[in-house]
Structure formats: structure tokens, C-alpha cells
Design a protein around this nucleic acid. Structure first.
Lengths: 228, 228
DNA sequence: TCGGCTATTTTTAGCGA
DNA sequence: CTCGCTAAAAATAGCCG
């Protein structure tokens, strides 16, 4: 028998049993890899998986767990299932604490980059902060410039195309005029109508570069709250 | 040459460059697998990775609120065993998730203010970002200027005090000279010694305004990695 | 649901650019 | 840091208890 295993498409497995088996296997693989990444690269990793039945599986690297034993000293004295629940709870508490800390740090740094809460900084700190912001600004200005050039280039191309088209249309109309003998006003109306369309196109085209906040990725990058 | 690749031990990679490369590669692999698990098995997955430099990488298969709603709505329906997740646990999970989300947002915003991860932004976004950074920079520069004026003012005051004191000391020495009849050279040596002290004081005084990076708070505010 | 077993696919370490 | 490459290592789909 050939046993030709298909290259698996990444889409929902319809067969329930197969899906569950795959979930079990891949979940283990994922947790293993998370753990390996944490160990090999000495970084903190947190992974949470909710199964379809609502069961929770999570992993967080030991360094996250080891920090903040203050809150971690929770007491689960019910002898029924002390081990499992306690550990999960402990992990969650620690994760919360760590995240709070990280969040406080990021928020503080962010405020300072926006020019708030500067009282606590000395001259040296301020100088360093200034440098960081300046380089950030430079990068943003650079990217913006590039983006504008792209936009200008695109628009010029479109303008040229439309001008060409307009010229062609005008020519056609002139030919029809000479052939059929229509009025001058009719001719000018059509011509102006074409131009109006052109301008409208130039100012509001190219959806890829305008406000499309449809994907959460963009929202996230701007630090806006998720839309859903 | 065989280039026989060793079976890699799972422990911290000591070589920095190799560790960073591995981090980059395995992180991508991990996120890909998390994504695949989510799609294939139709489950919710949240994955958070903090790099050694404090950079955050985050993935969640759907909005965290949805995950939590589902989780919160799920009660024990299987008769075999009551749901282990307590109210307390659910509250912690929710807190963790919310914090994760906020942290991801802050981190992203921060990186963009530093000029990183700008590829997802359109012109309008970039313009807005530029404005925010500019105002932040202005505030920092202003505060820095004020701080410098304070510093200058303080130093000038001290200089005046010390000059006055030196003049007084010089006067005293002159009086003593006339009274006891010491040599001129001795007089000048003392005088010069006083001046030297003065200059030295002016340049390296006031510990509160110079390089004291001893507390983690300062590092934190500047977004430096923790020392531990 | 789980473990074990291949054949096959996927990941990735090491290296260079 | 990233990307590409290659061969080795690891993960896993499908199947059988």
C-alpha cells in the first residue's frame, strides 16, 4: 500500500475524531516548543489554549512563575484536588502580577515619550529620552516621506492615464461633432464631466493607503482598542 | 566534511548571536504552529513571548474578550466531573487576558513611537504619529531646558558663595601674613589650593542631578532591560 | 481518548551573504 | 536582524489497537 500522506491543508478538520486527535497531538507539540524556546533563548513565554469543550491548557515559563512569590503563596487547603487547581491558580496569579508590572513599565515609558511625567527624570535621563524620541521621529518622518513618494508616483501615473483617456474621449467627441453636428454646449458638458471625475479619482483613490482599519493588526499597532 | 548536526540539547544557548537567530526562527515556528492549531482544531490560542530585550510578541486567535466570554459562559455540563475552574480562577484568567491585551497595545504603540514596525501604517497614521512624537519631543526638550537653567542657576549661586568664601579666606590669610610675617610663596600656594577646590566643586557636585542609575526605577522609566 | 507505529512533511541548526 | 540553503532532526497524519 502506498500510504501517500497528503500535505495537510491548514483549515478546520471536519472529522471530529480526527480533529480531537490532532488537537491532542499538536497541542503537546506546541507546548513542548514553547518550553524549548523559553529554555534555549532564555525568554519568557506564556501560552494559553482553550479547547472546544472549554478546557484550559496553559504554560508559562518558569521565570514568570518564580517571580513574585508574595501573591503566589496562595492557600488551597481543600484536600480534594489541591495540586492541579492550585498550580493553575498560582500560575494565573503570577502571570497577572507580571503582566501588571510590565504594563506599568510600558505605560510609564510611553507617557514619558509623550512628554508626560518628566518630573522624576534628571538631566542625563532627559537627554537620553530626547535622543530616543528624536531617532523615533526620524524613522517616522523617513517612512512617511517614502510613503508620500509612493503615493505621489501612483497618483501621477493615474493622472497621466486619465489625461490621456480624456484626450481620447475629447477627440472622439470632436469627431462625432463634425460628423453629426452637435451643439458646443453638449461638448463642453461632457468634457467637464470627465475632468470632474478625474479630480475626484485623484483625491480619494487607492484604498490600500487610506483609512482601512478593518484588520485588528492595524488597530493593535496604533494602540487603539480592538474593534470587536 | 560531514557537518553532522548534533541533536540539540535543550538548554540555554550561550552564544548570543546564535541565541538571537534561534529565537527569531523558533519564535516564528511557534507562532505558526499556534496559528495552525487554532485553525485546524477550531480552538482559541493565546501566545505571549517576551524577548530578552523586553520586546513583546503576541498572538491570539480571536479577540480575548470572546475567549473570556466563552470561558465565562461555560459551566460544568459534563456529569462526570464538576468544572474545576473556580470563580476566582476565572477572574484571574480574565485579568491576565485583559492585561495581556493592554500590554500588547502599549508595547506596539511604544515600538511605533521609537520608529519600529511602521510598515503597517498608512500616511494618515504616520502623520498622526509624527505629531504625537513631535509634541512629546517638544515637552522633553522644554523640561530639559528648564532643568538646565535650574542647574545653571544653582551652580552660579554656589560659585558666588564659594568666590565670596575664598575672598574671605584670602583676606584672613593676608591678615595672618601681616601679623606673623610668612613667606609670599606660602601665601600663593594656599590661595591656589582654594581655587582648585572651588573649580572641582563646581564641576562634580550635586549627586541628585548626575548619573545615578543605581535604582531600577530609573532604568525602568527609560525602558532599559532589567538588570536581573 | 490515548499510545504506538511508520512514512512523510515540517522545522530548524549551521553556515554564508 | 533577515534571508536562503541543505541536511539532519523533529513533528505528525493516518492507521491500529
Amino acid at each position: 500500500m502506498r500510504m501517500v500522506r497528503q500535505k495537510t491543508q491548514i483549515r478546520k478538520i471536519e472529522n471530529l475524531a480526527a480533529r480531537q486527535v490532532t488537537f491532542s497531538k499538536r497541542r503537546r507539540g506546541l507546548f513542548k516548543k514553547a518550553q524549548e524556546l523559553s529554555t534555549l533563548c532564555d525568554v519568557d513565554v506564556a501560552l494559553i489554549v482553550f479547547s472546544a469543550t472549554g478546557k484550559l491548557f496553559h504554560y508559562s515559563s518558569s521565570s514568570i512563575n518564580q517571580v513574585l512569590e508574595r501573591r503566589g503563596l496562595l492557600q488551597s487547603k481543600n484536600g480534594e484536588e489541591p495540586q492541579q487547581t492550585s498550580q493553575e491558580m498560582q500560575a494565573e496569579l503570577k502571570r497577572s502580577a507580571i503582566l501588571s508590572k510590565e504594563l506599568a513599565e510600558k505605560s510609564s515609558e510611553l507617557r514619558q515619550m509623550k512628554g508626560e511625567d518628566l518630573q522624576g527624570l534628571n538631566l542625563k535621563d532627559l537627554n537620553k529620552l530626547e535622543g530616543i524620541i528624536e531617532s523615533g521621529l526620524a524613522a517616522v518622518v523617513k517612512t512617511k516621506g517614502e510613503r508620500m513618494w509612493e503615493e505621489i508616483s501612483t497618483l501621477k501615473k493615474k493622472e497621466a492615464q486619465l489625461l490621456e483617456e480624456n484626450a481620447r474621449l475629447k477627440q472622439q467627441l470632436l469627431i462625432m461633432d463634425t460628423g453629426v453636428g452637435e451643439t458646443d454646449t453638449q461638448d463642453h458638458r461632457s468634457h467637464h464631466h470627465s475632468l470632474t471625475l478625474t479630480i475626484s479619482n485623484l483625491s480619494s483613490r487607492d484604498p490600500s493607503h487610506s483609512n482601512n482599519f478593518s484588520n485588528s493588526d492595524t488597530c493593535l499597532k496604533l494602540g487603539l482598542p480592538f474593534s470587536n
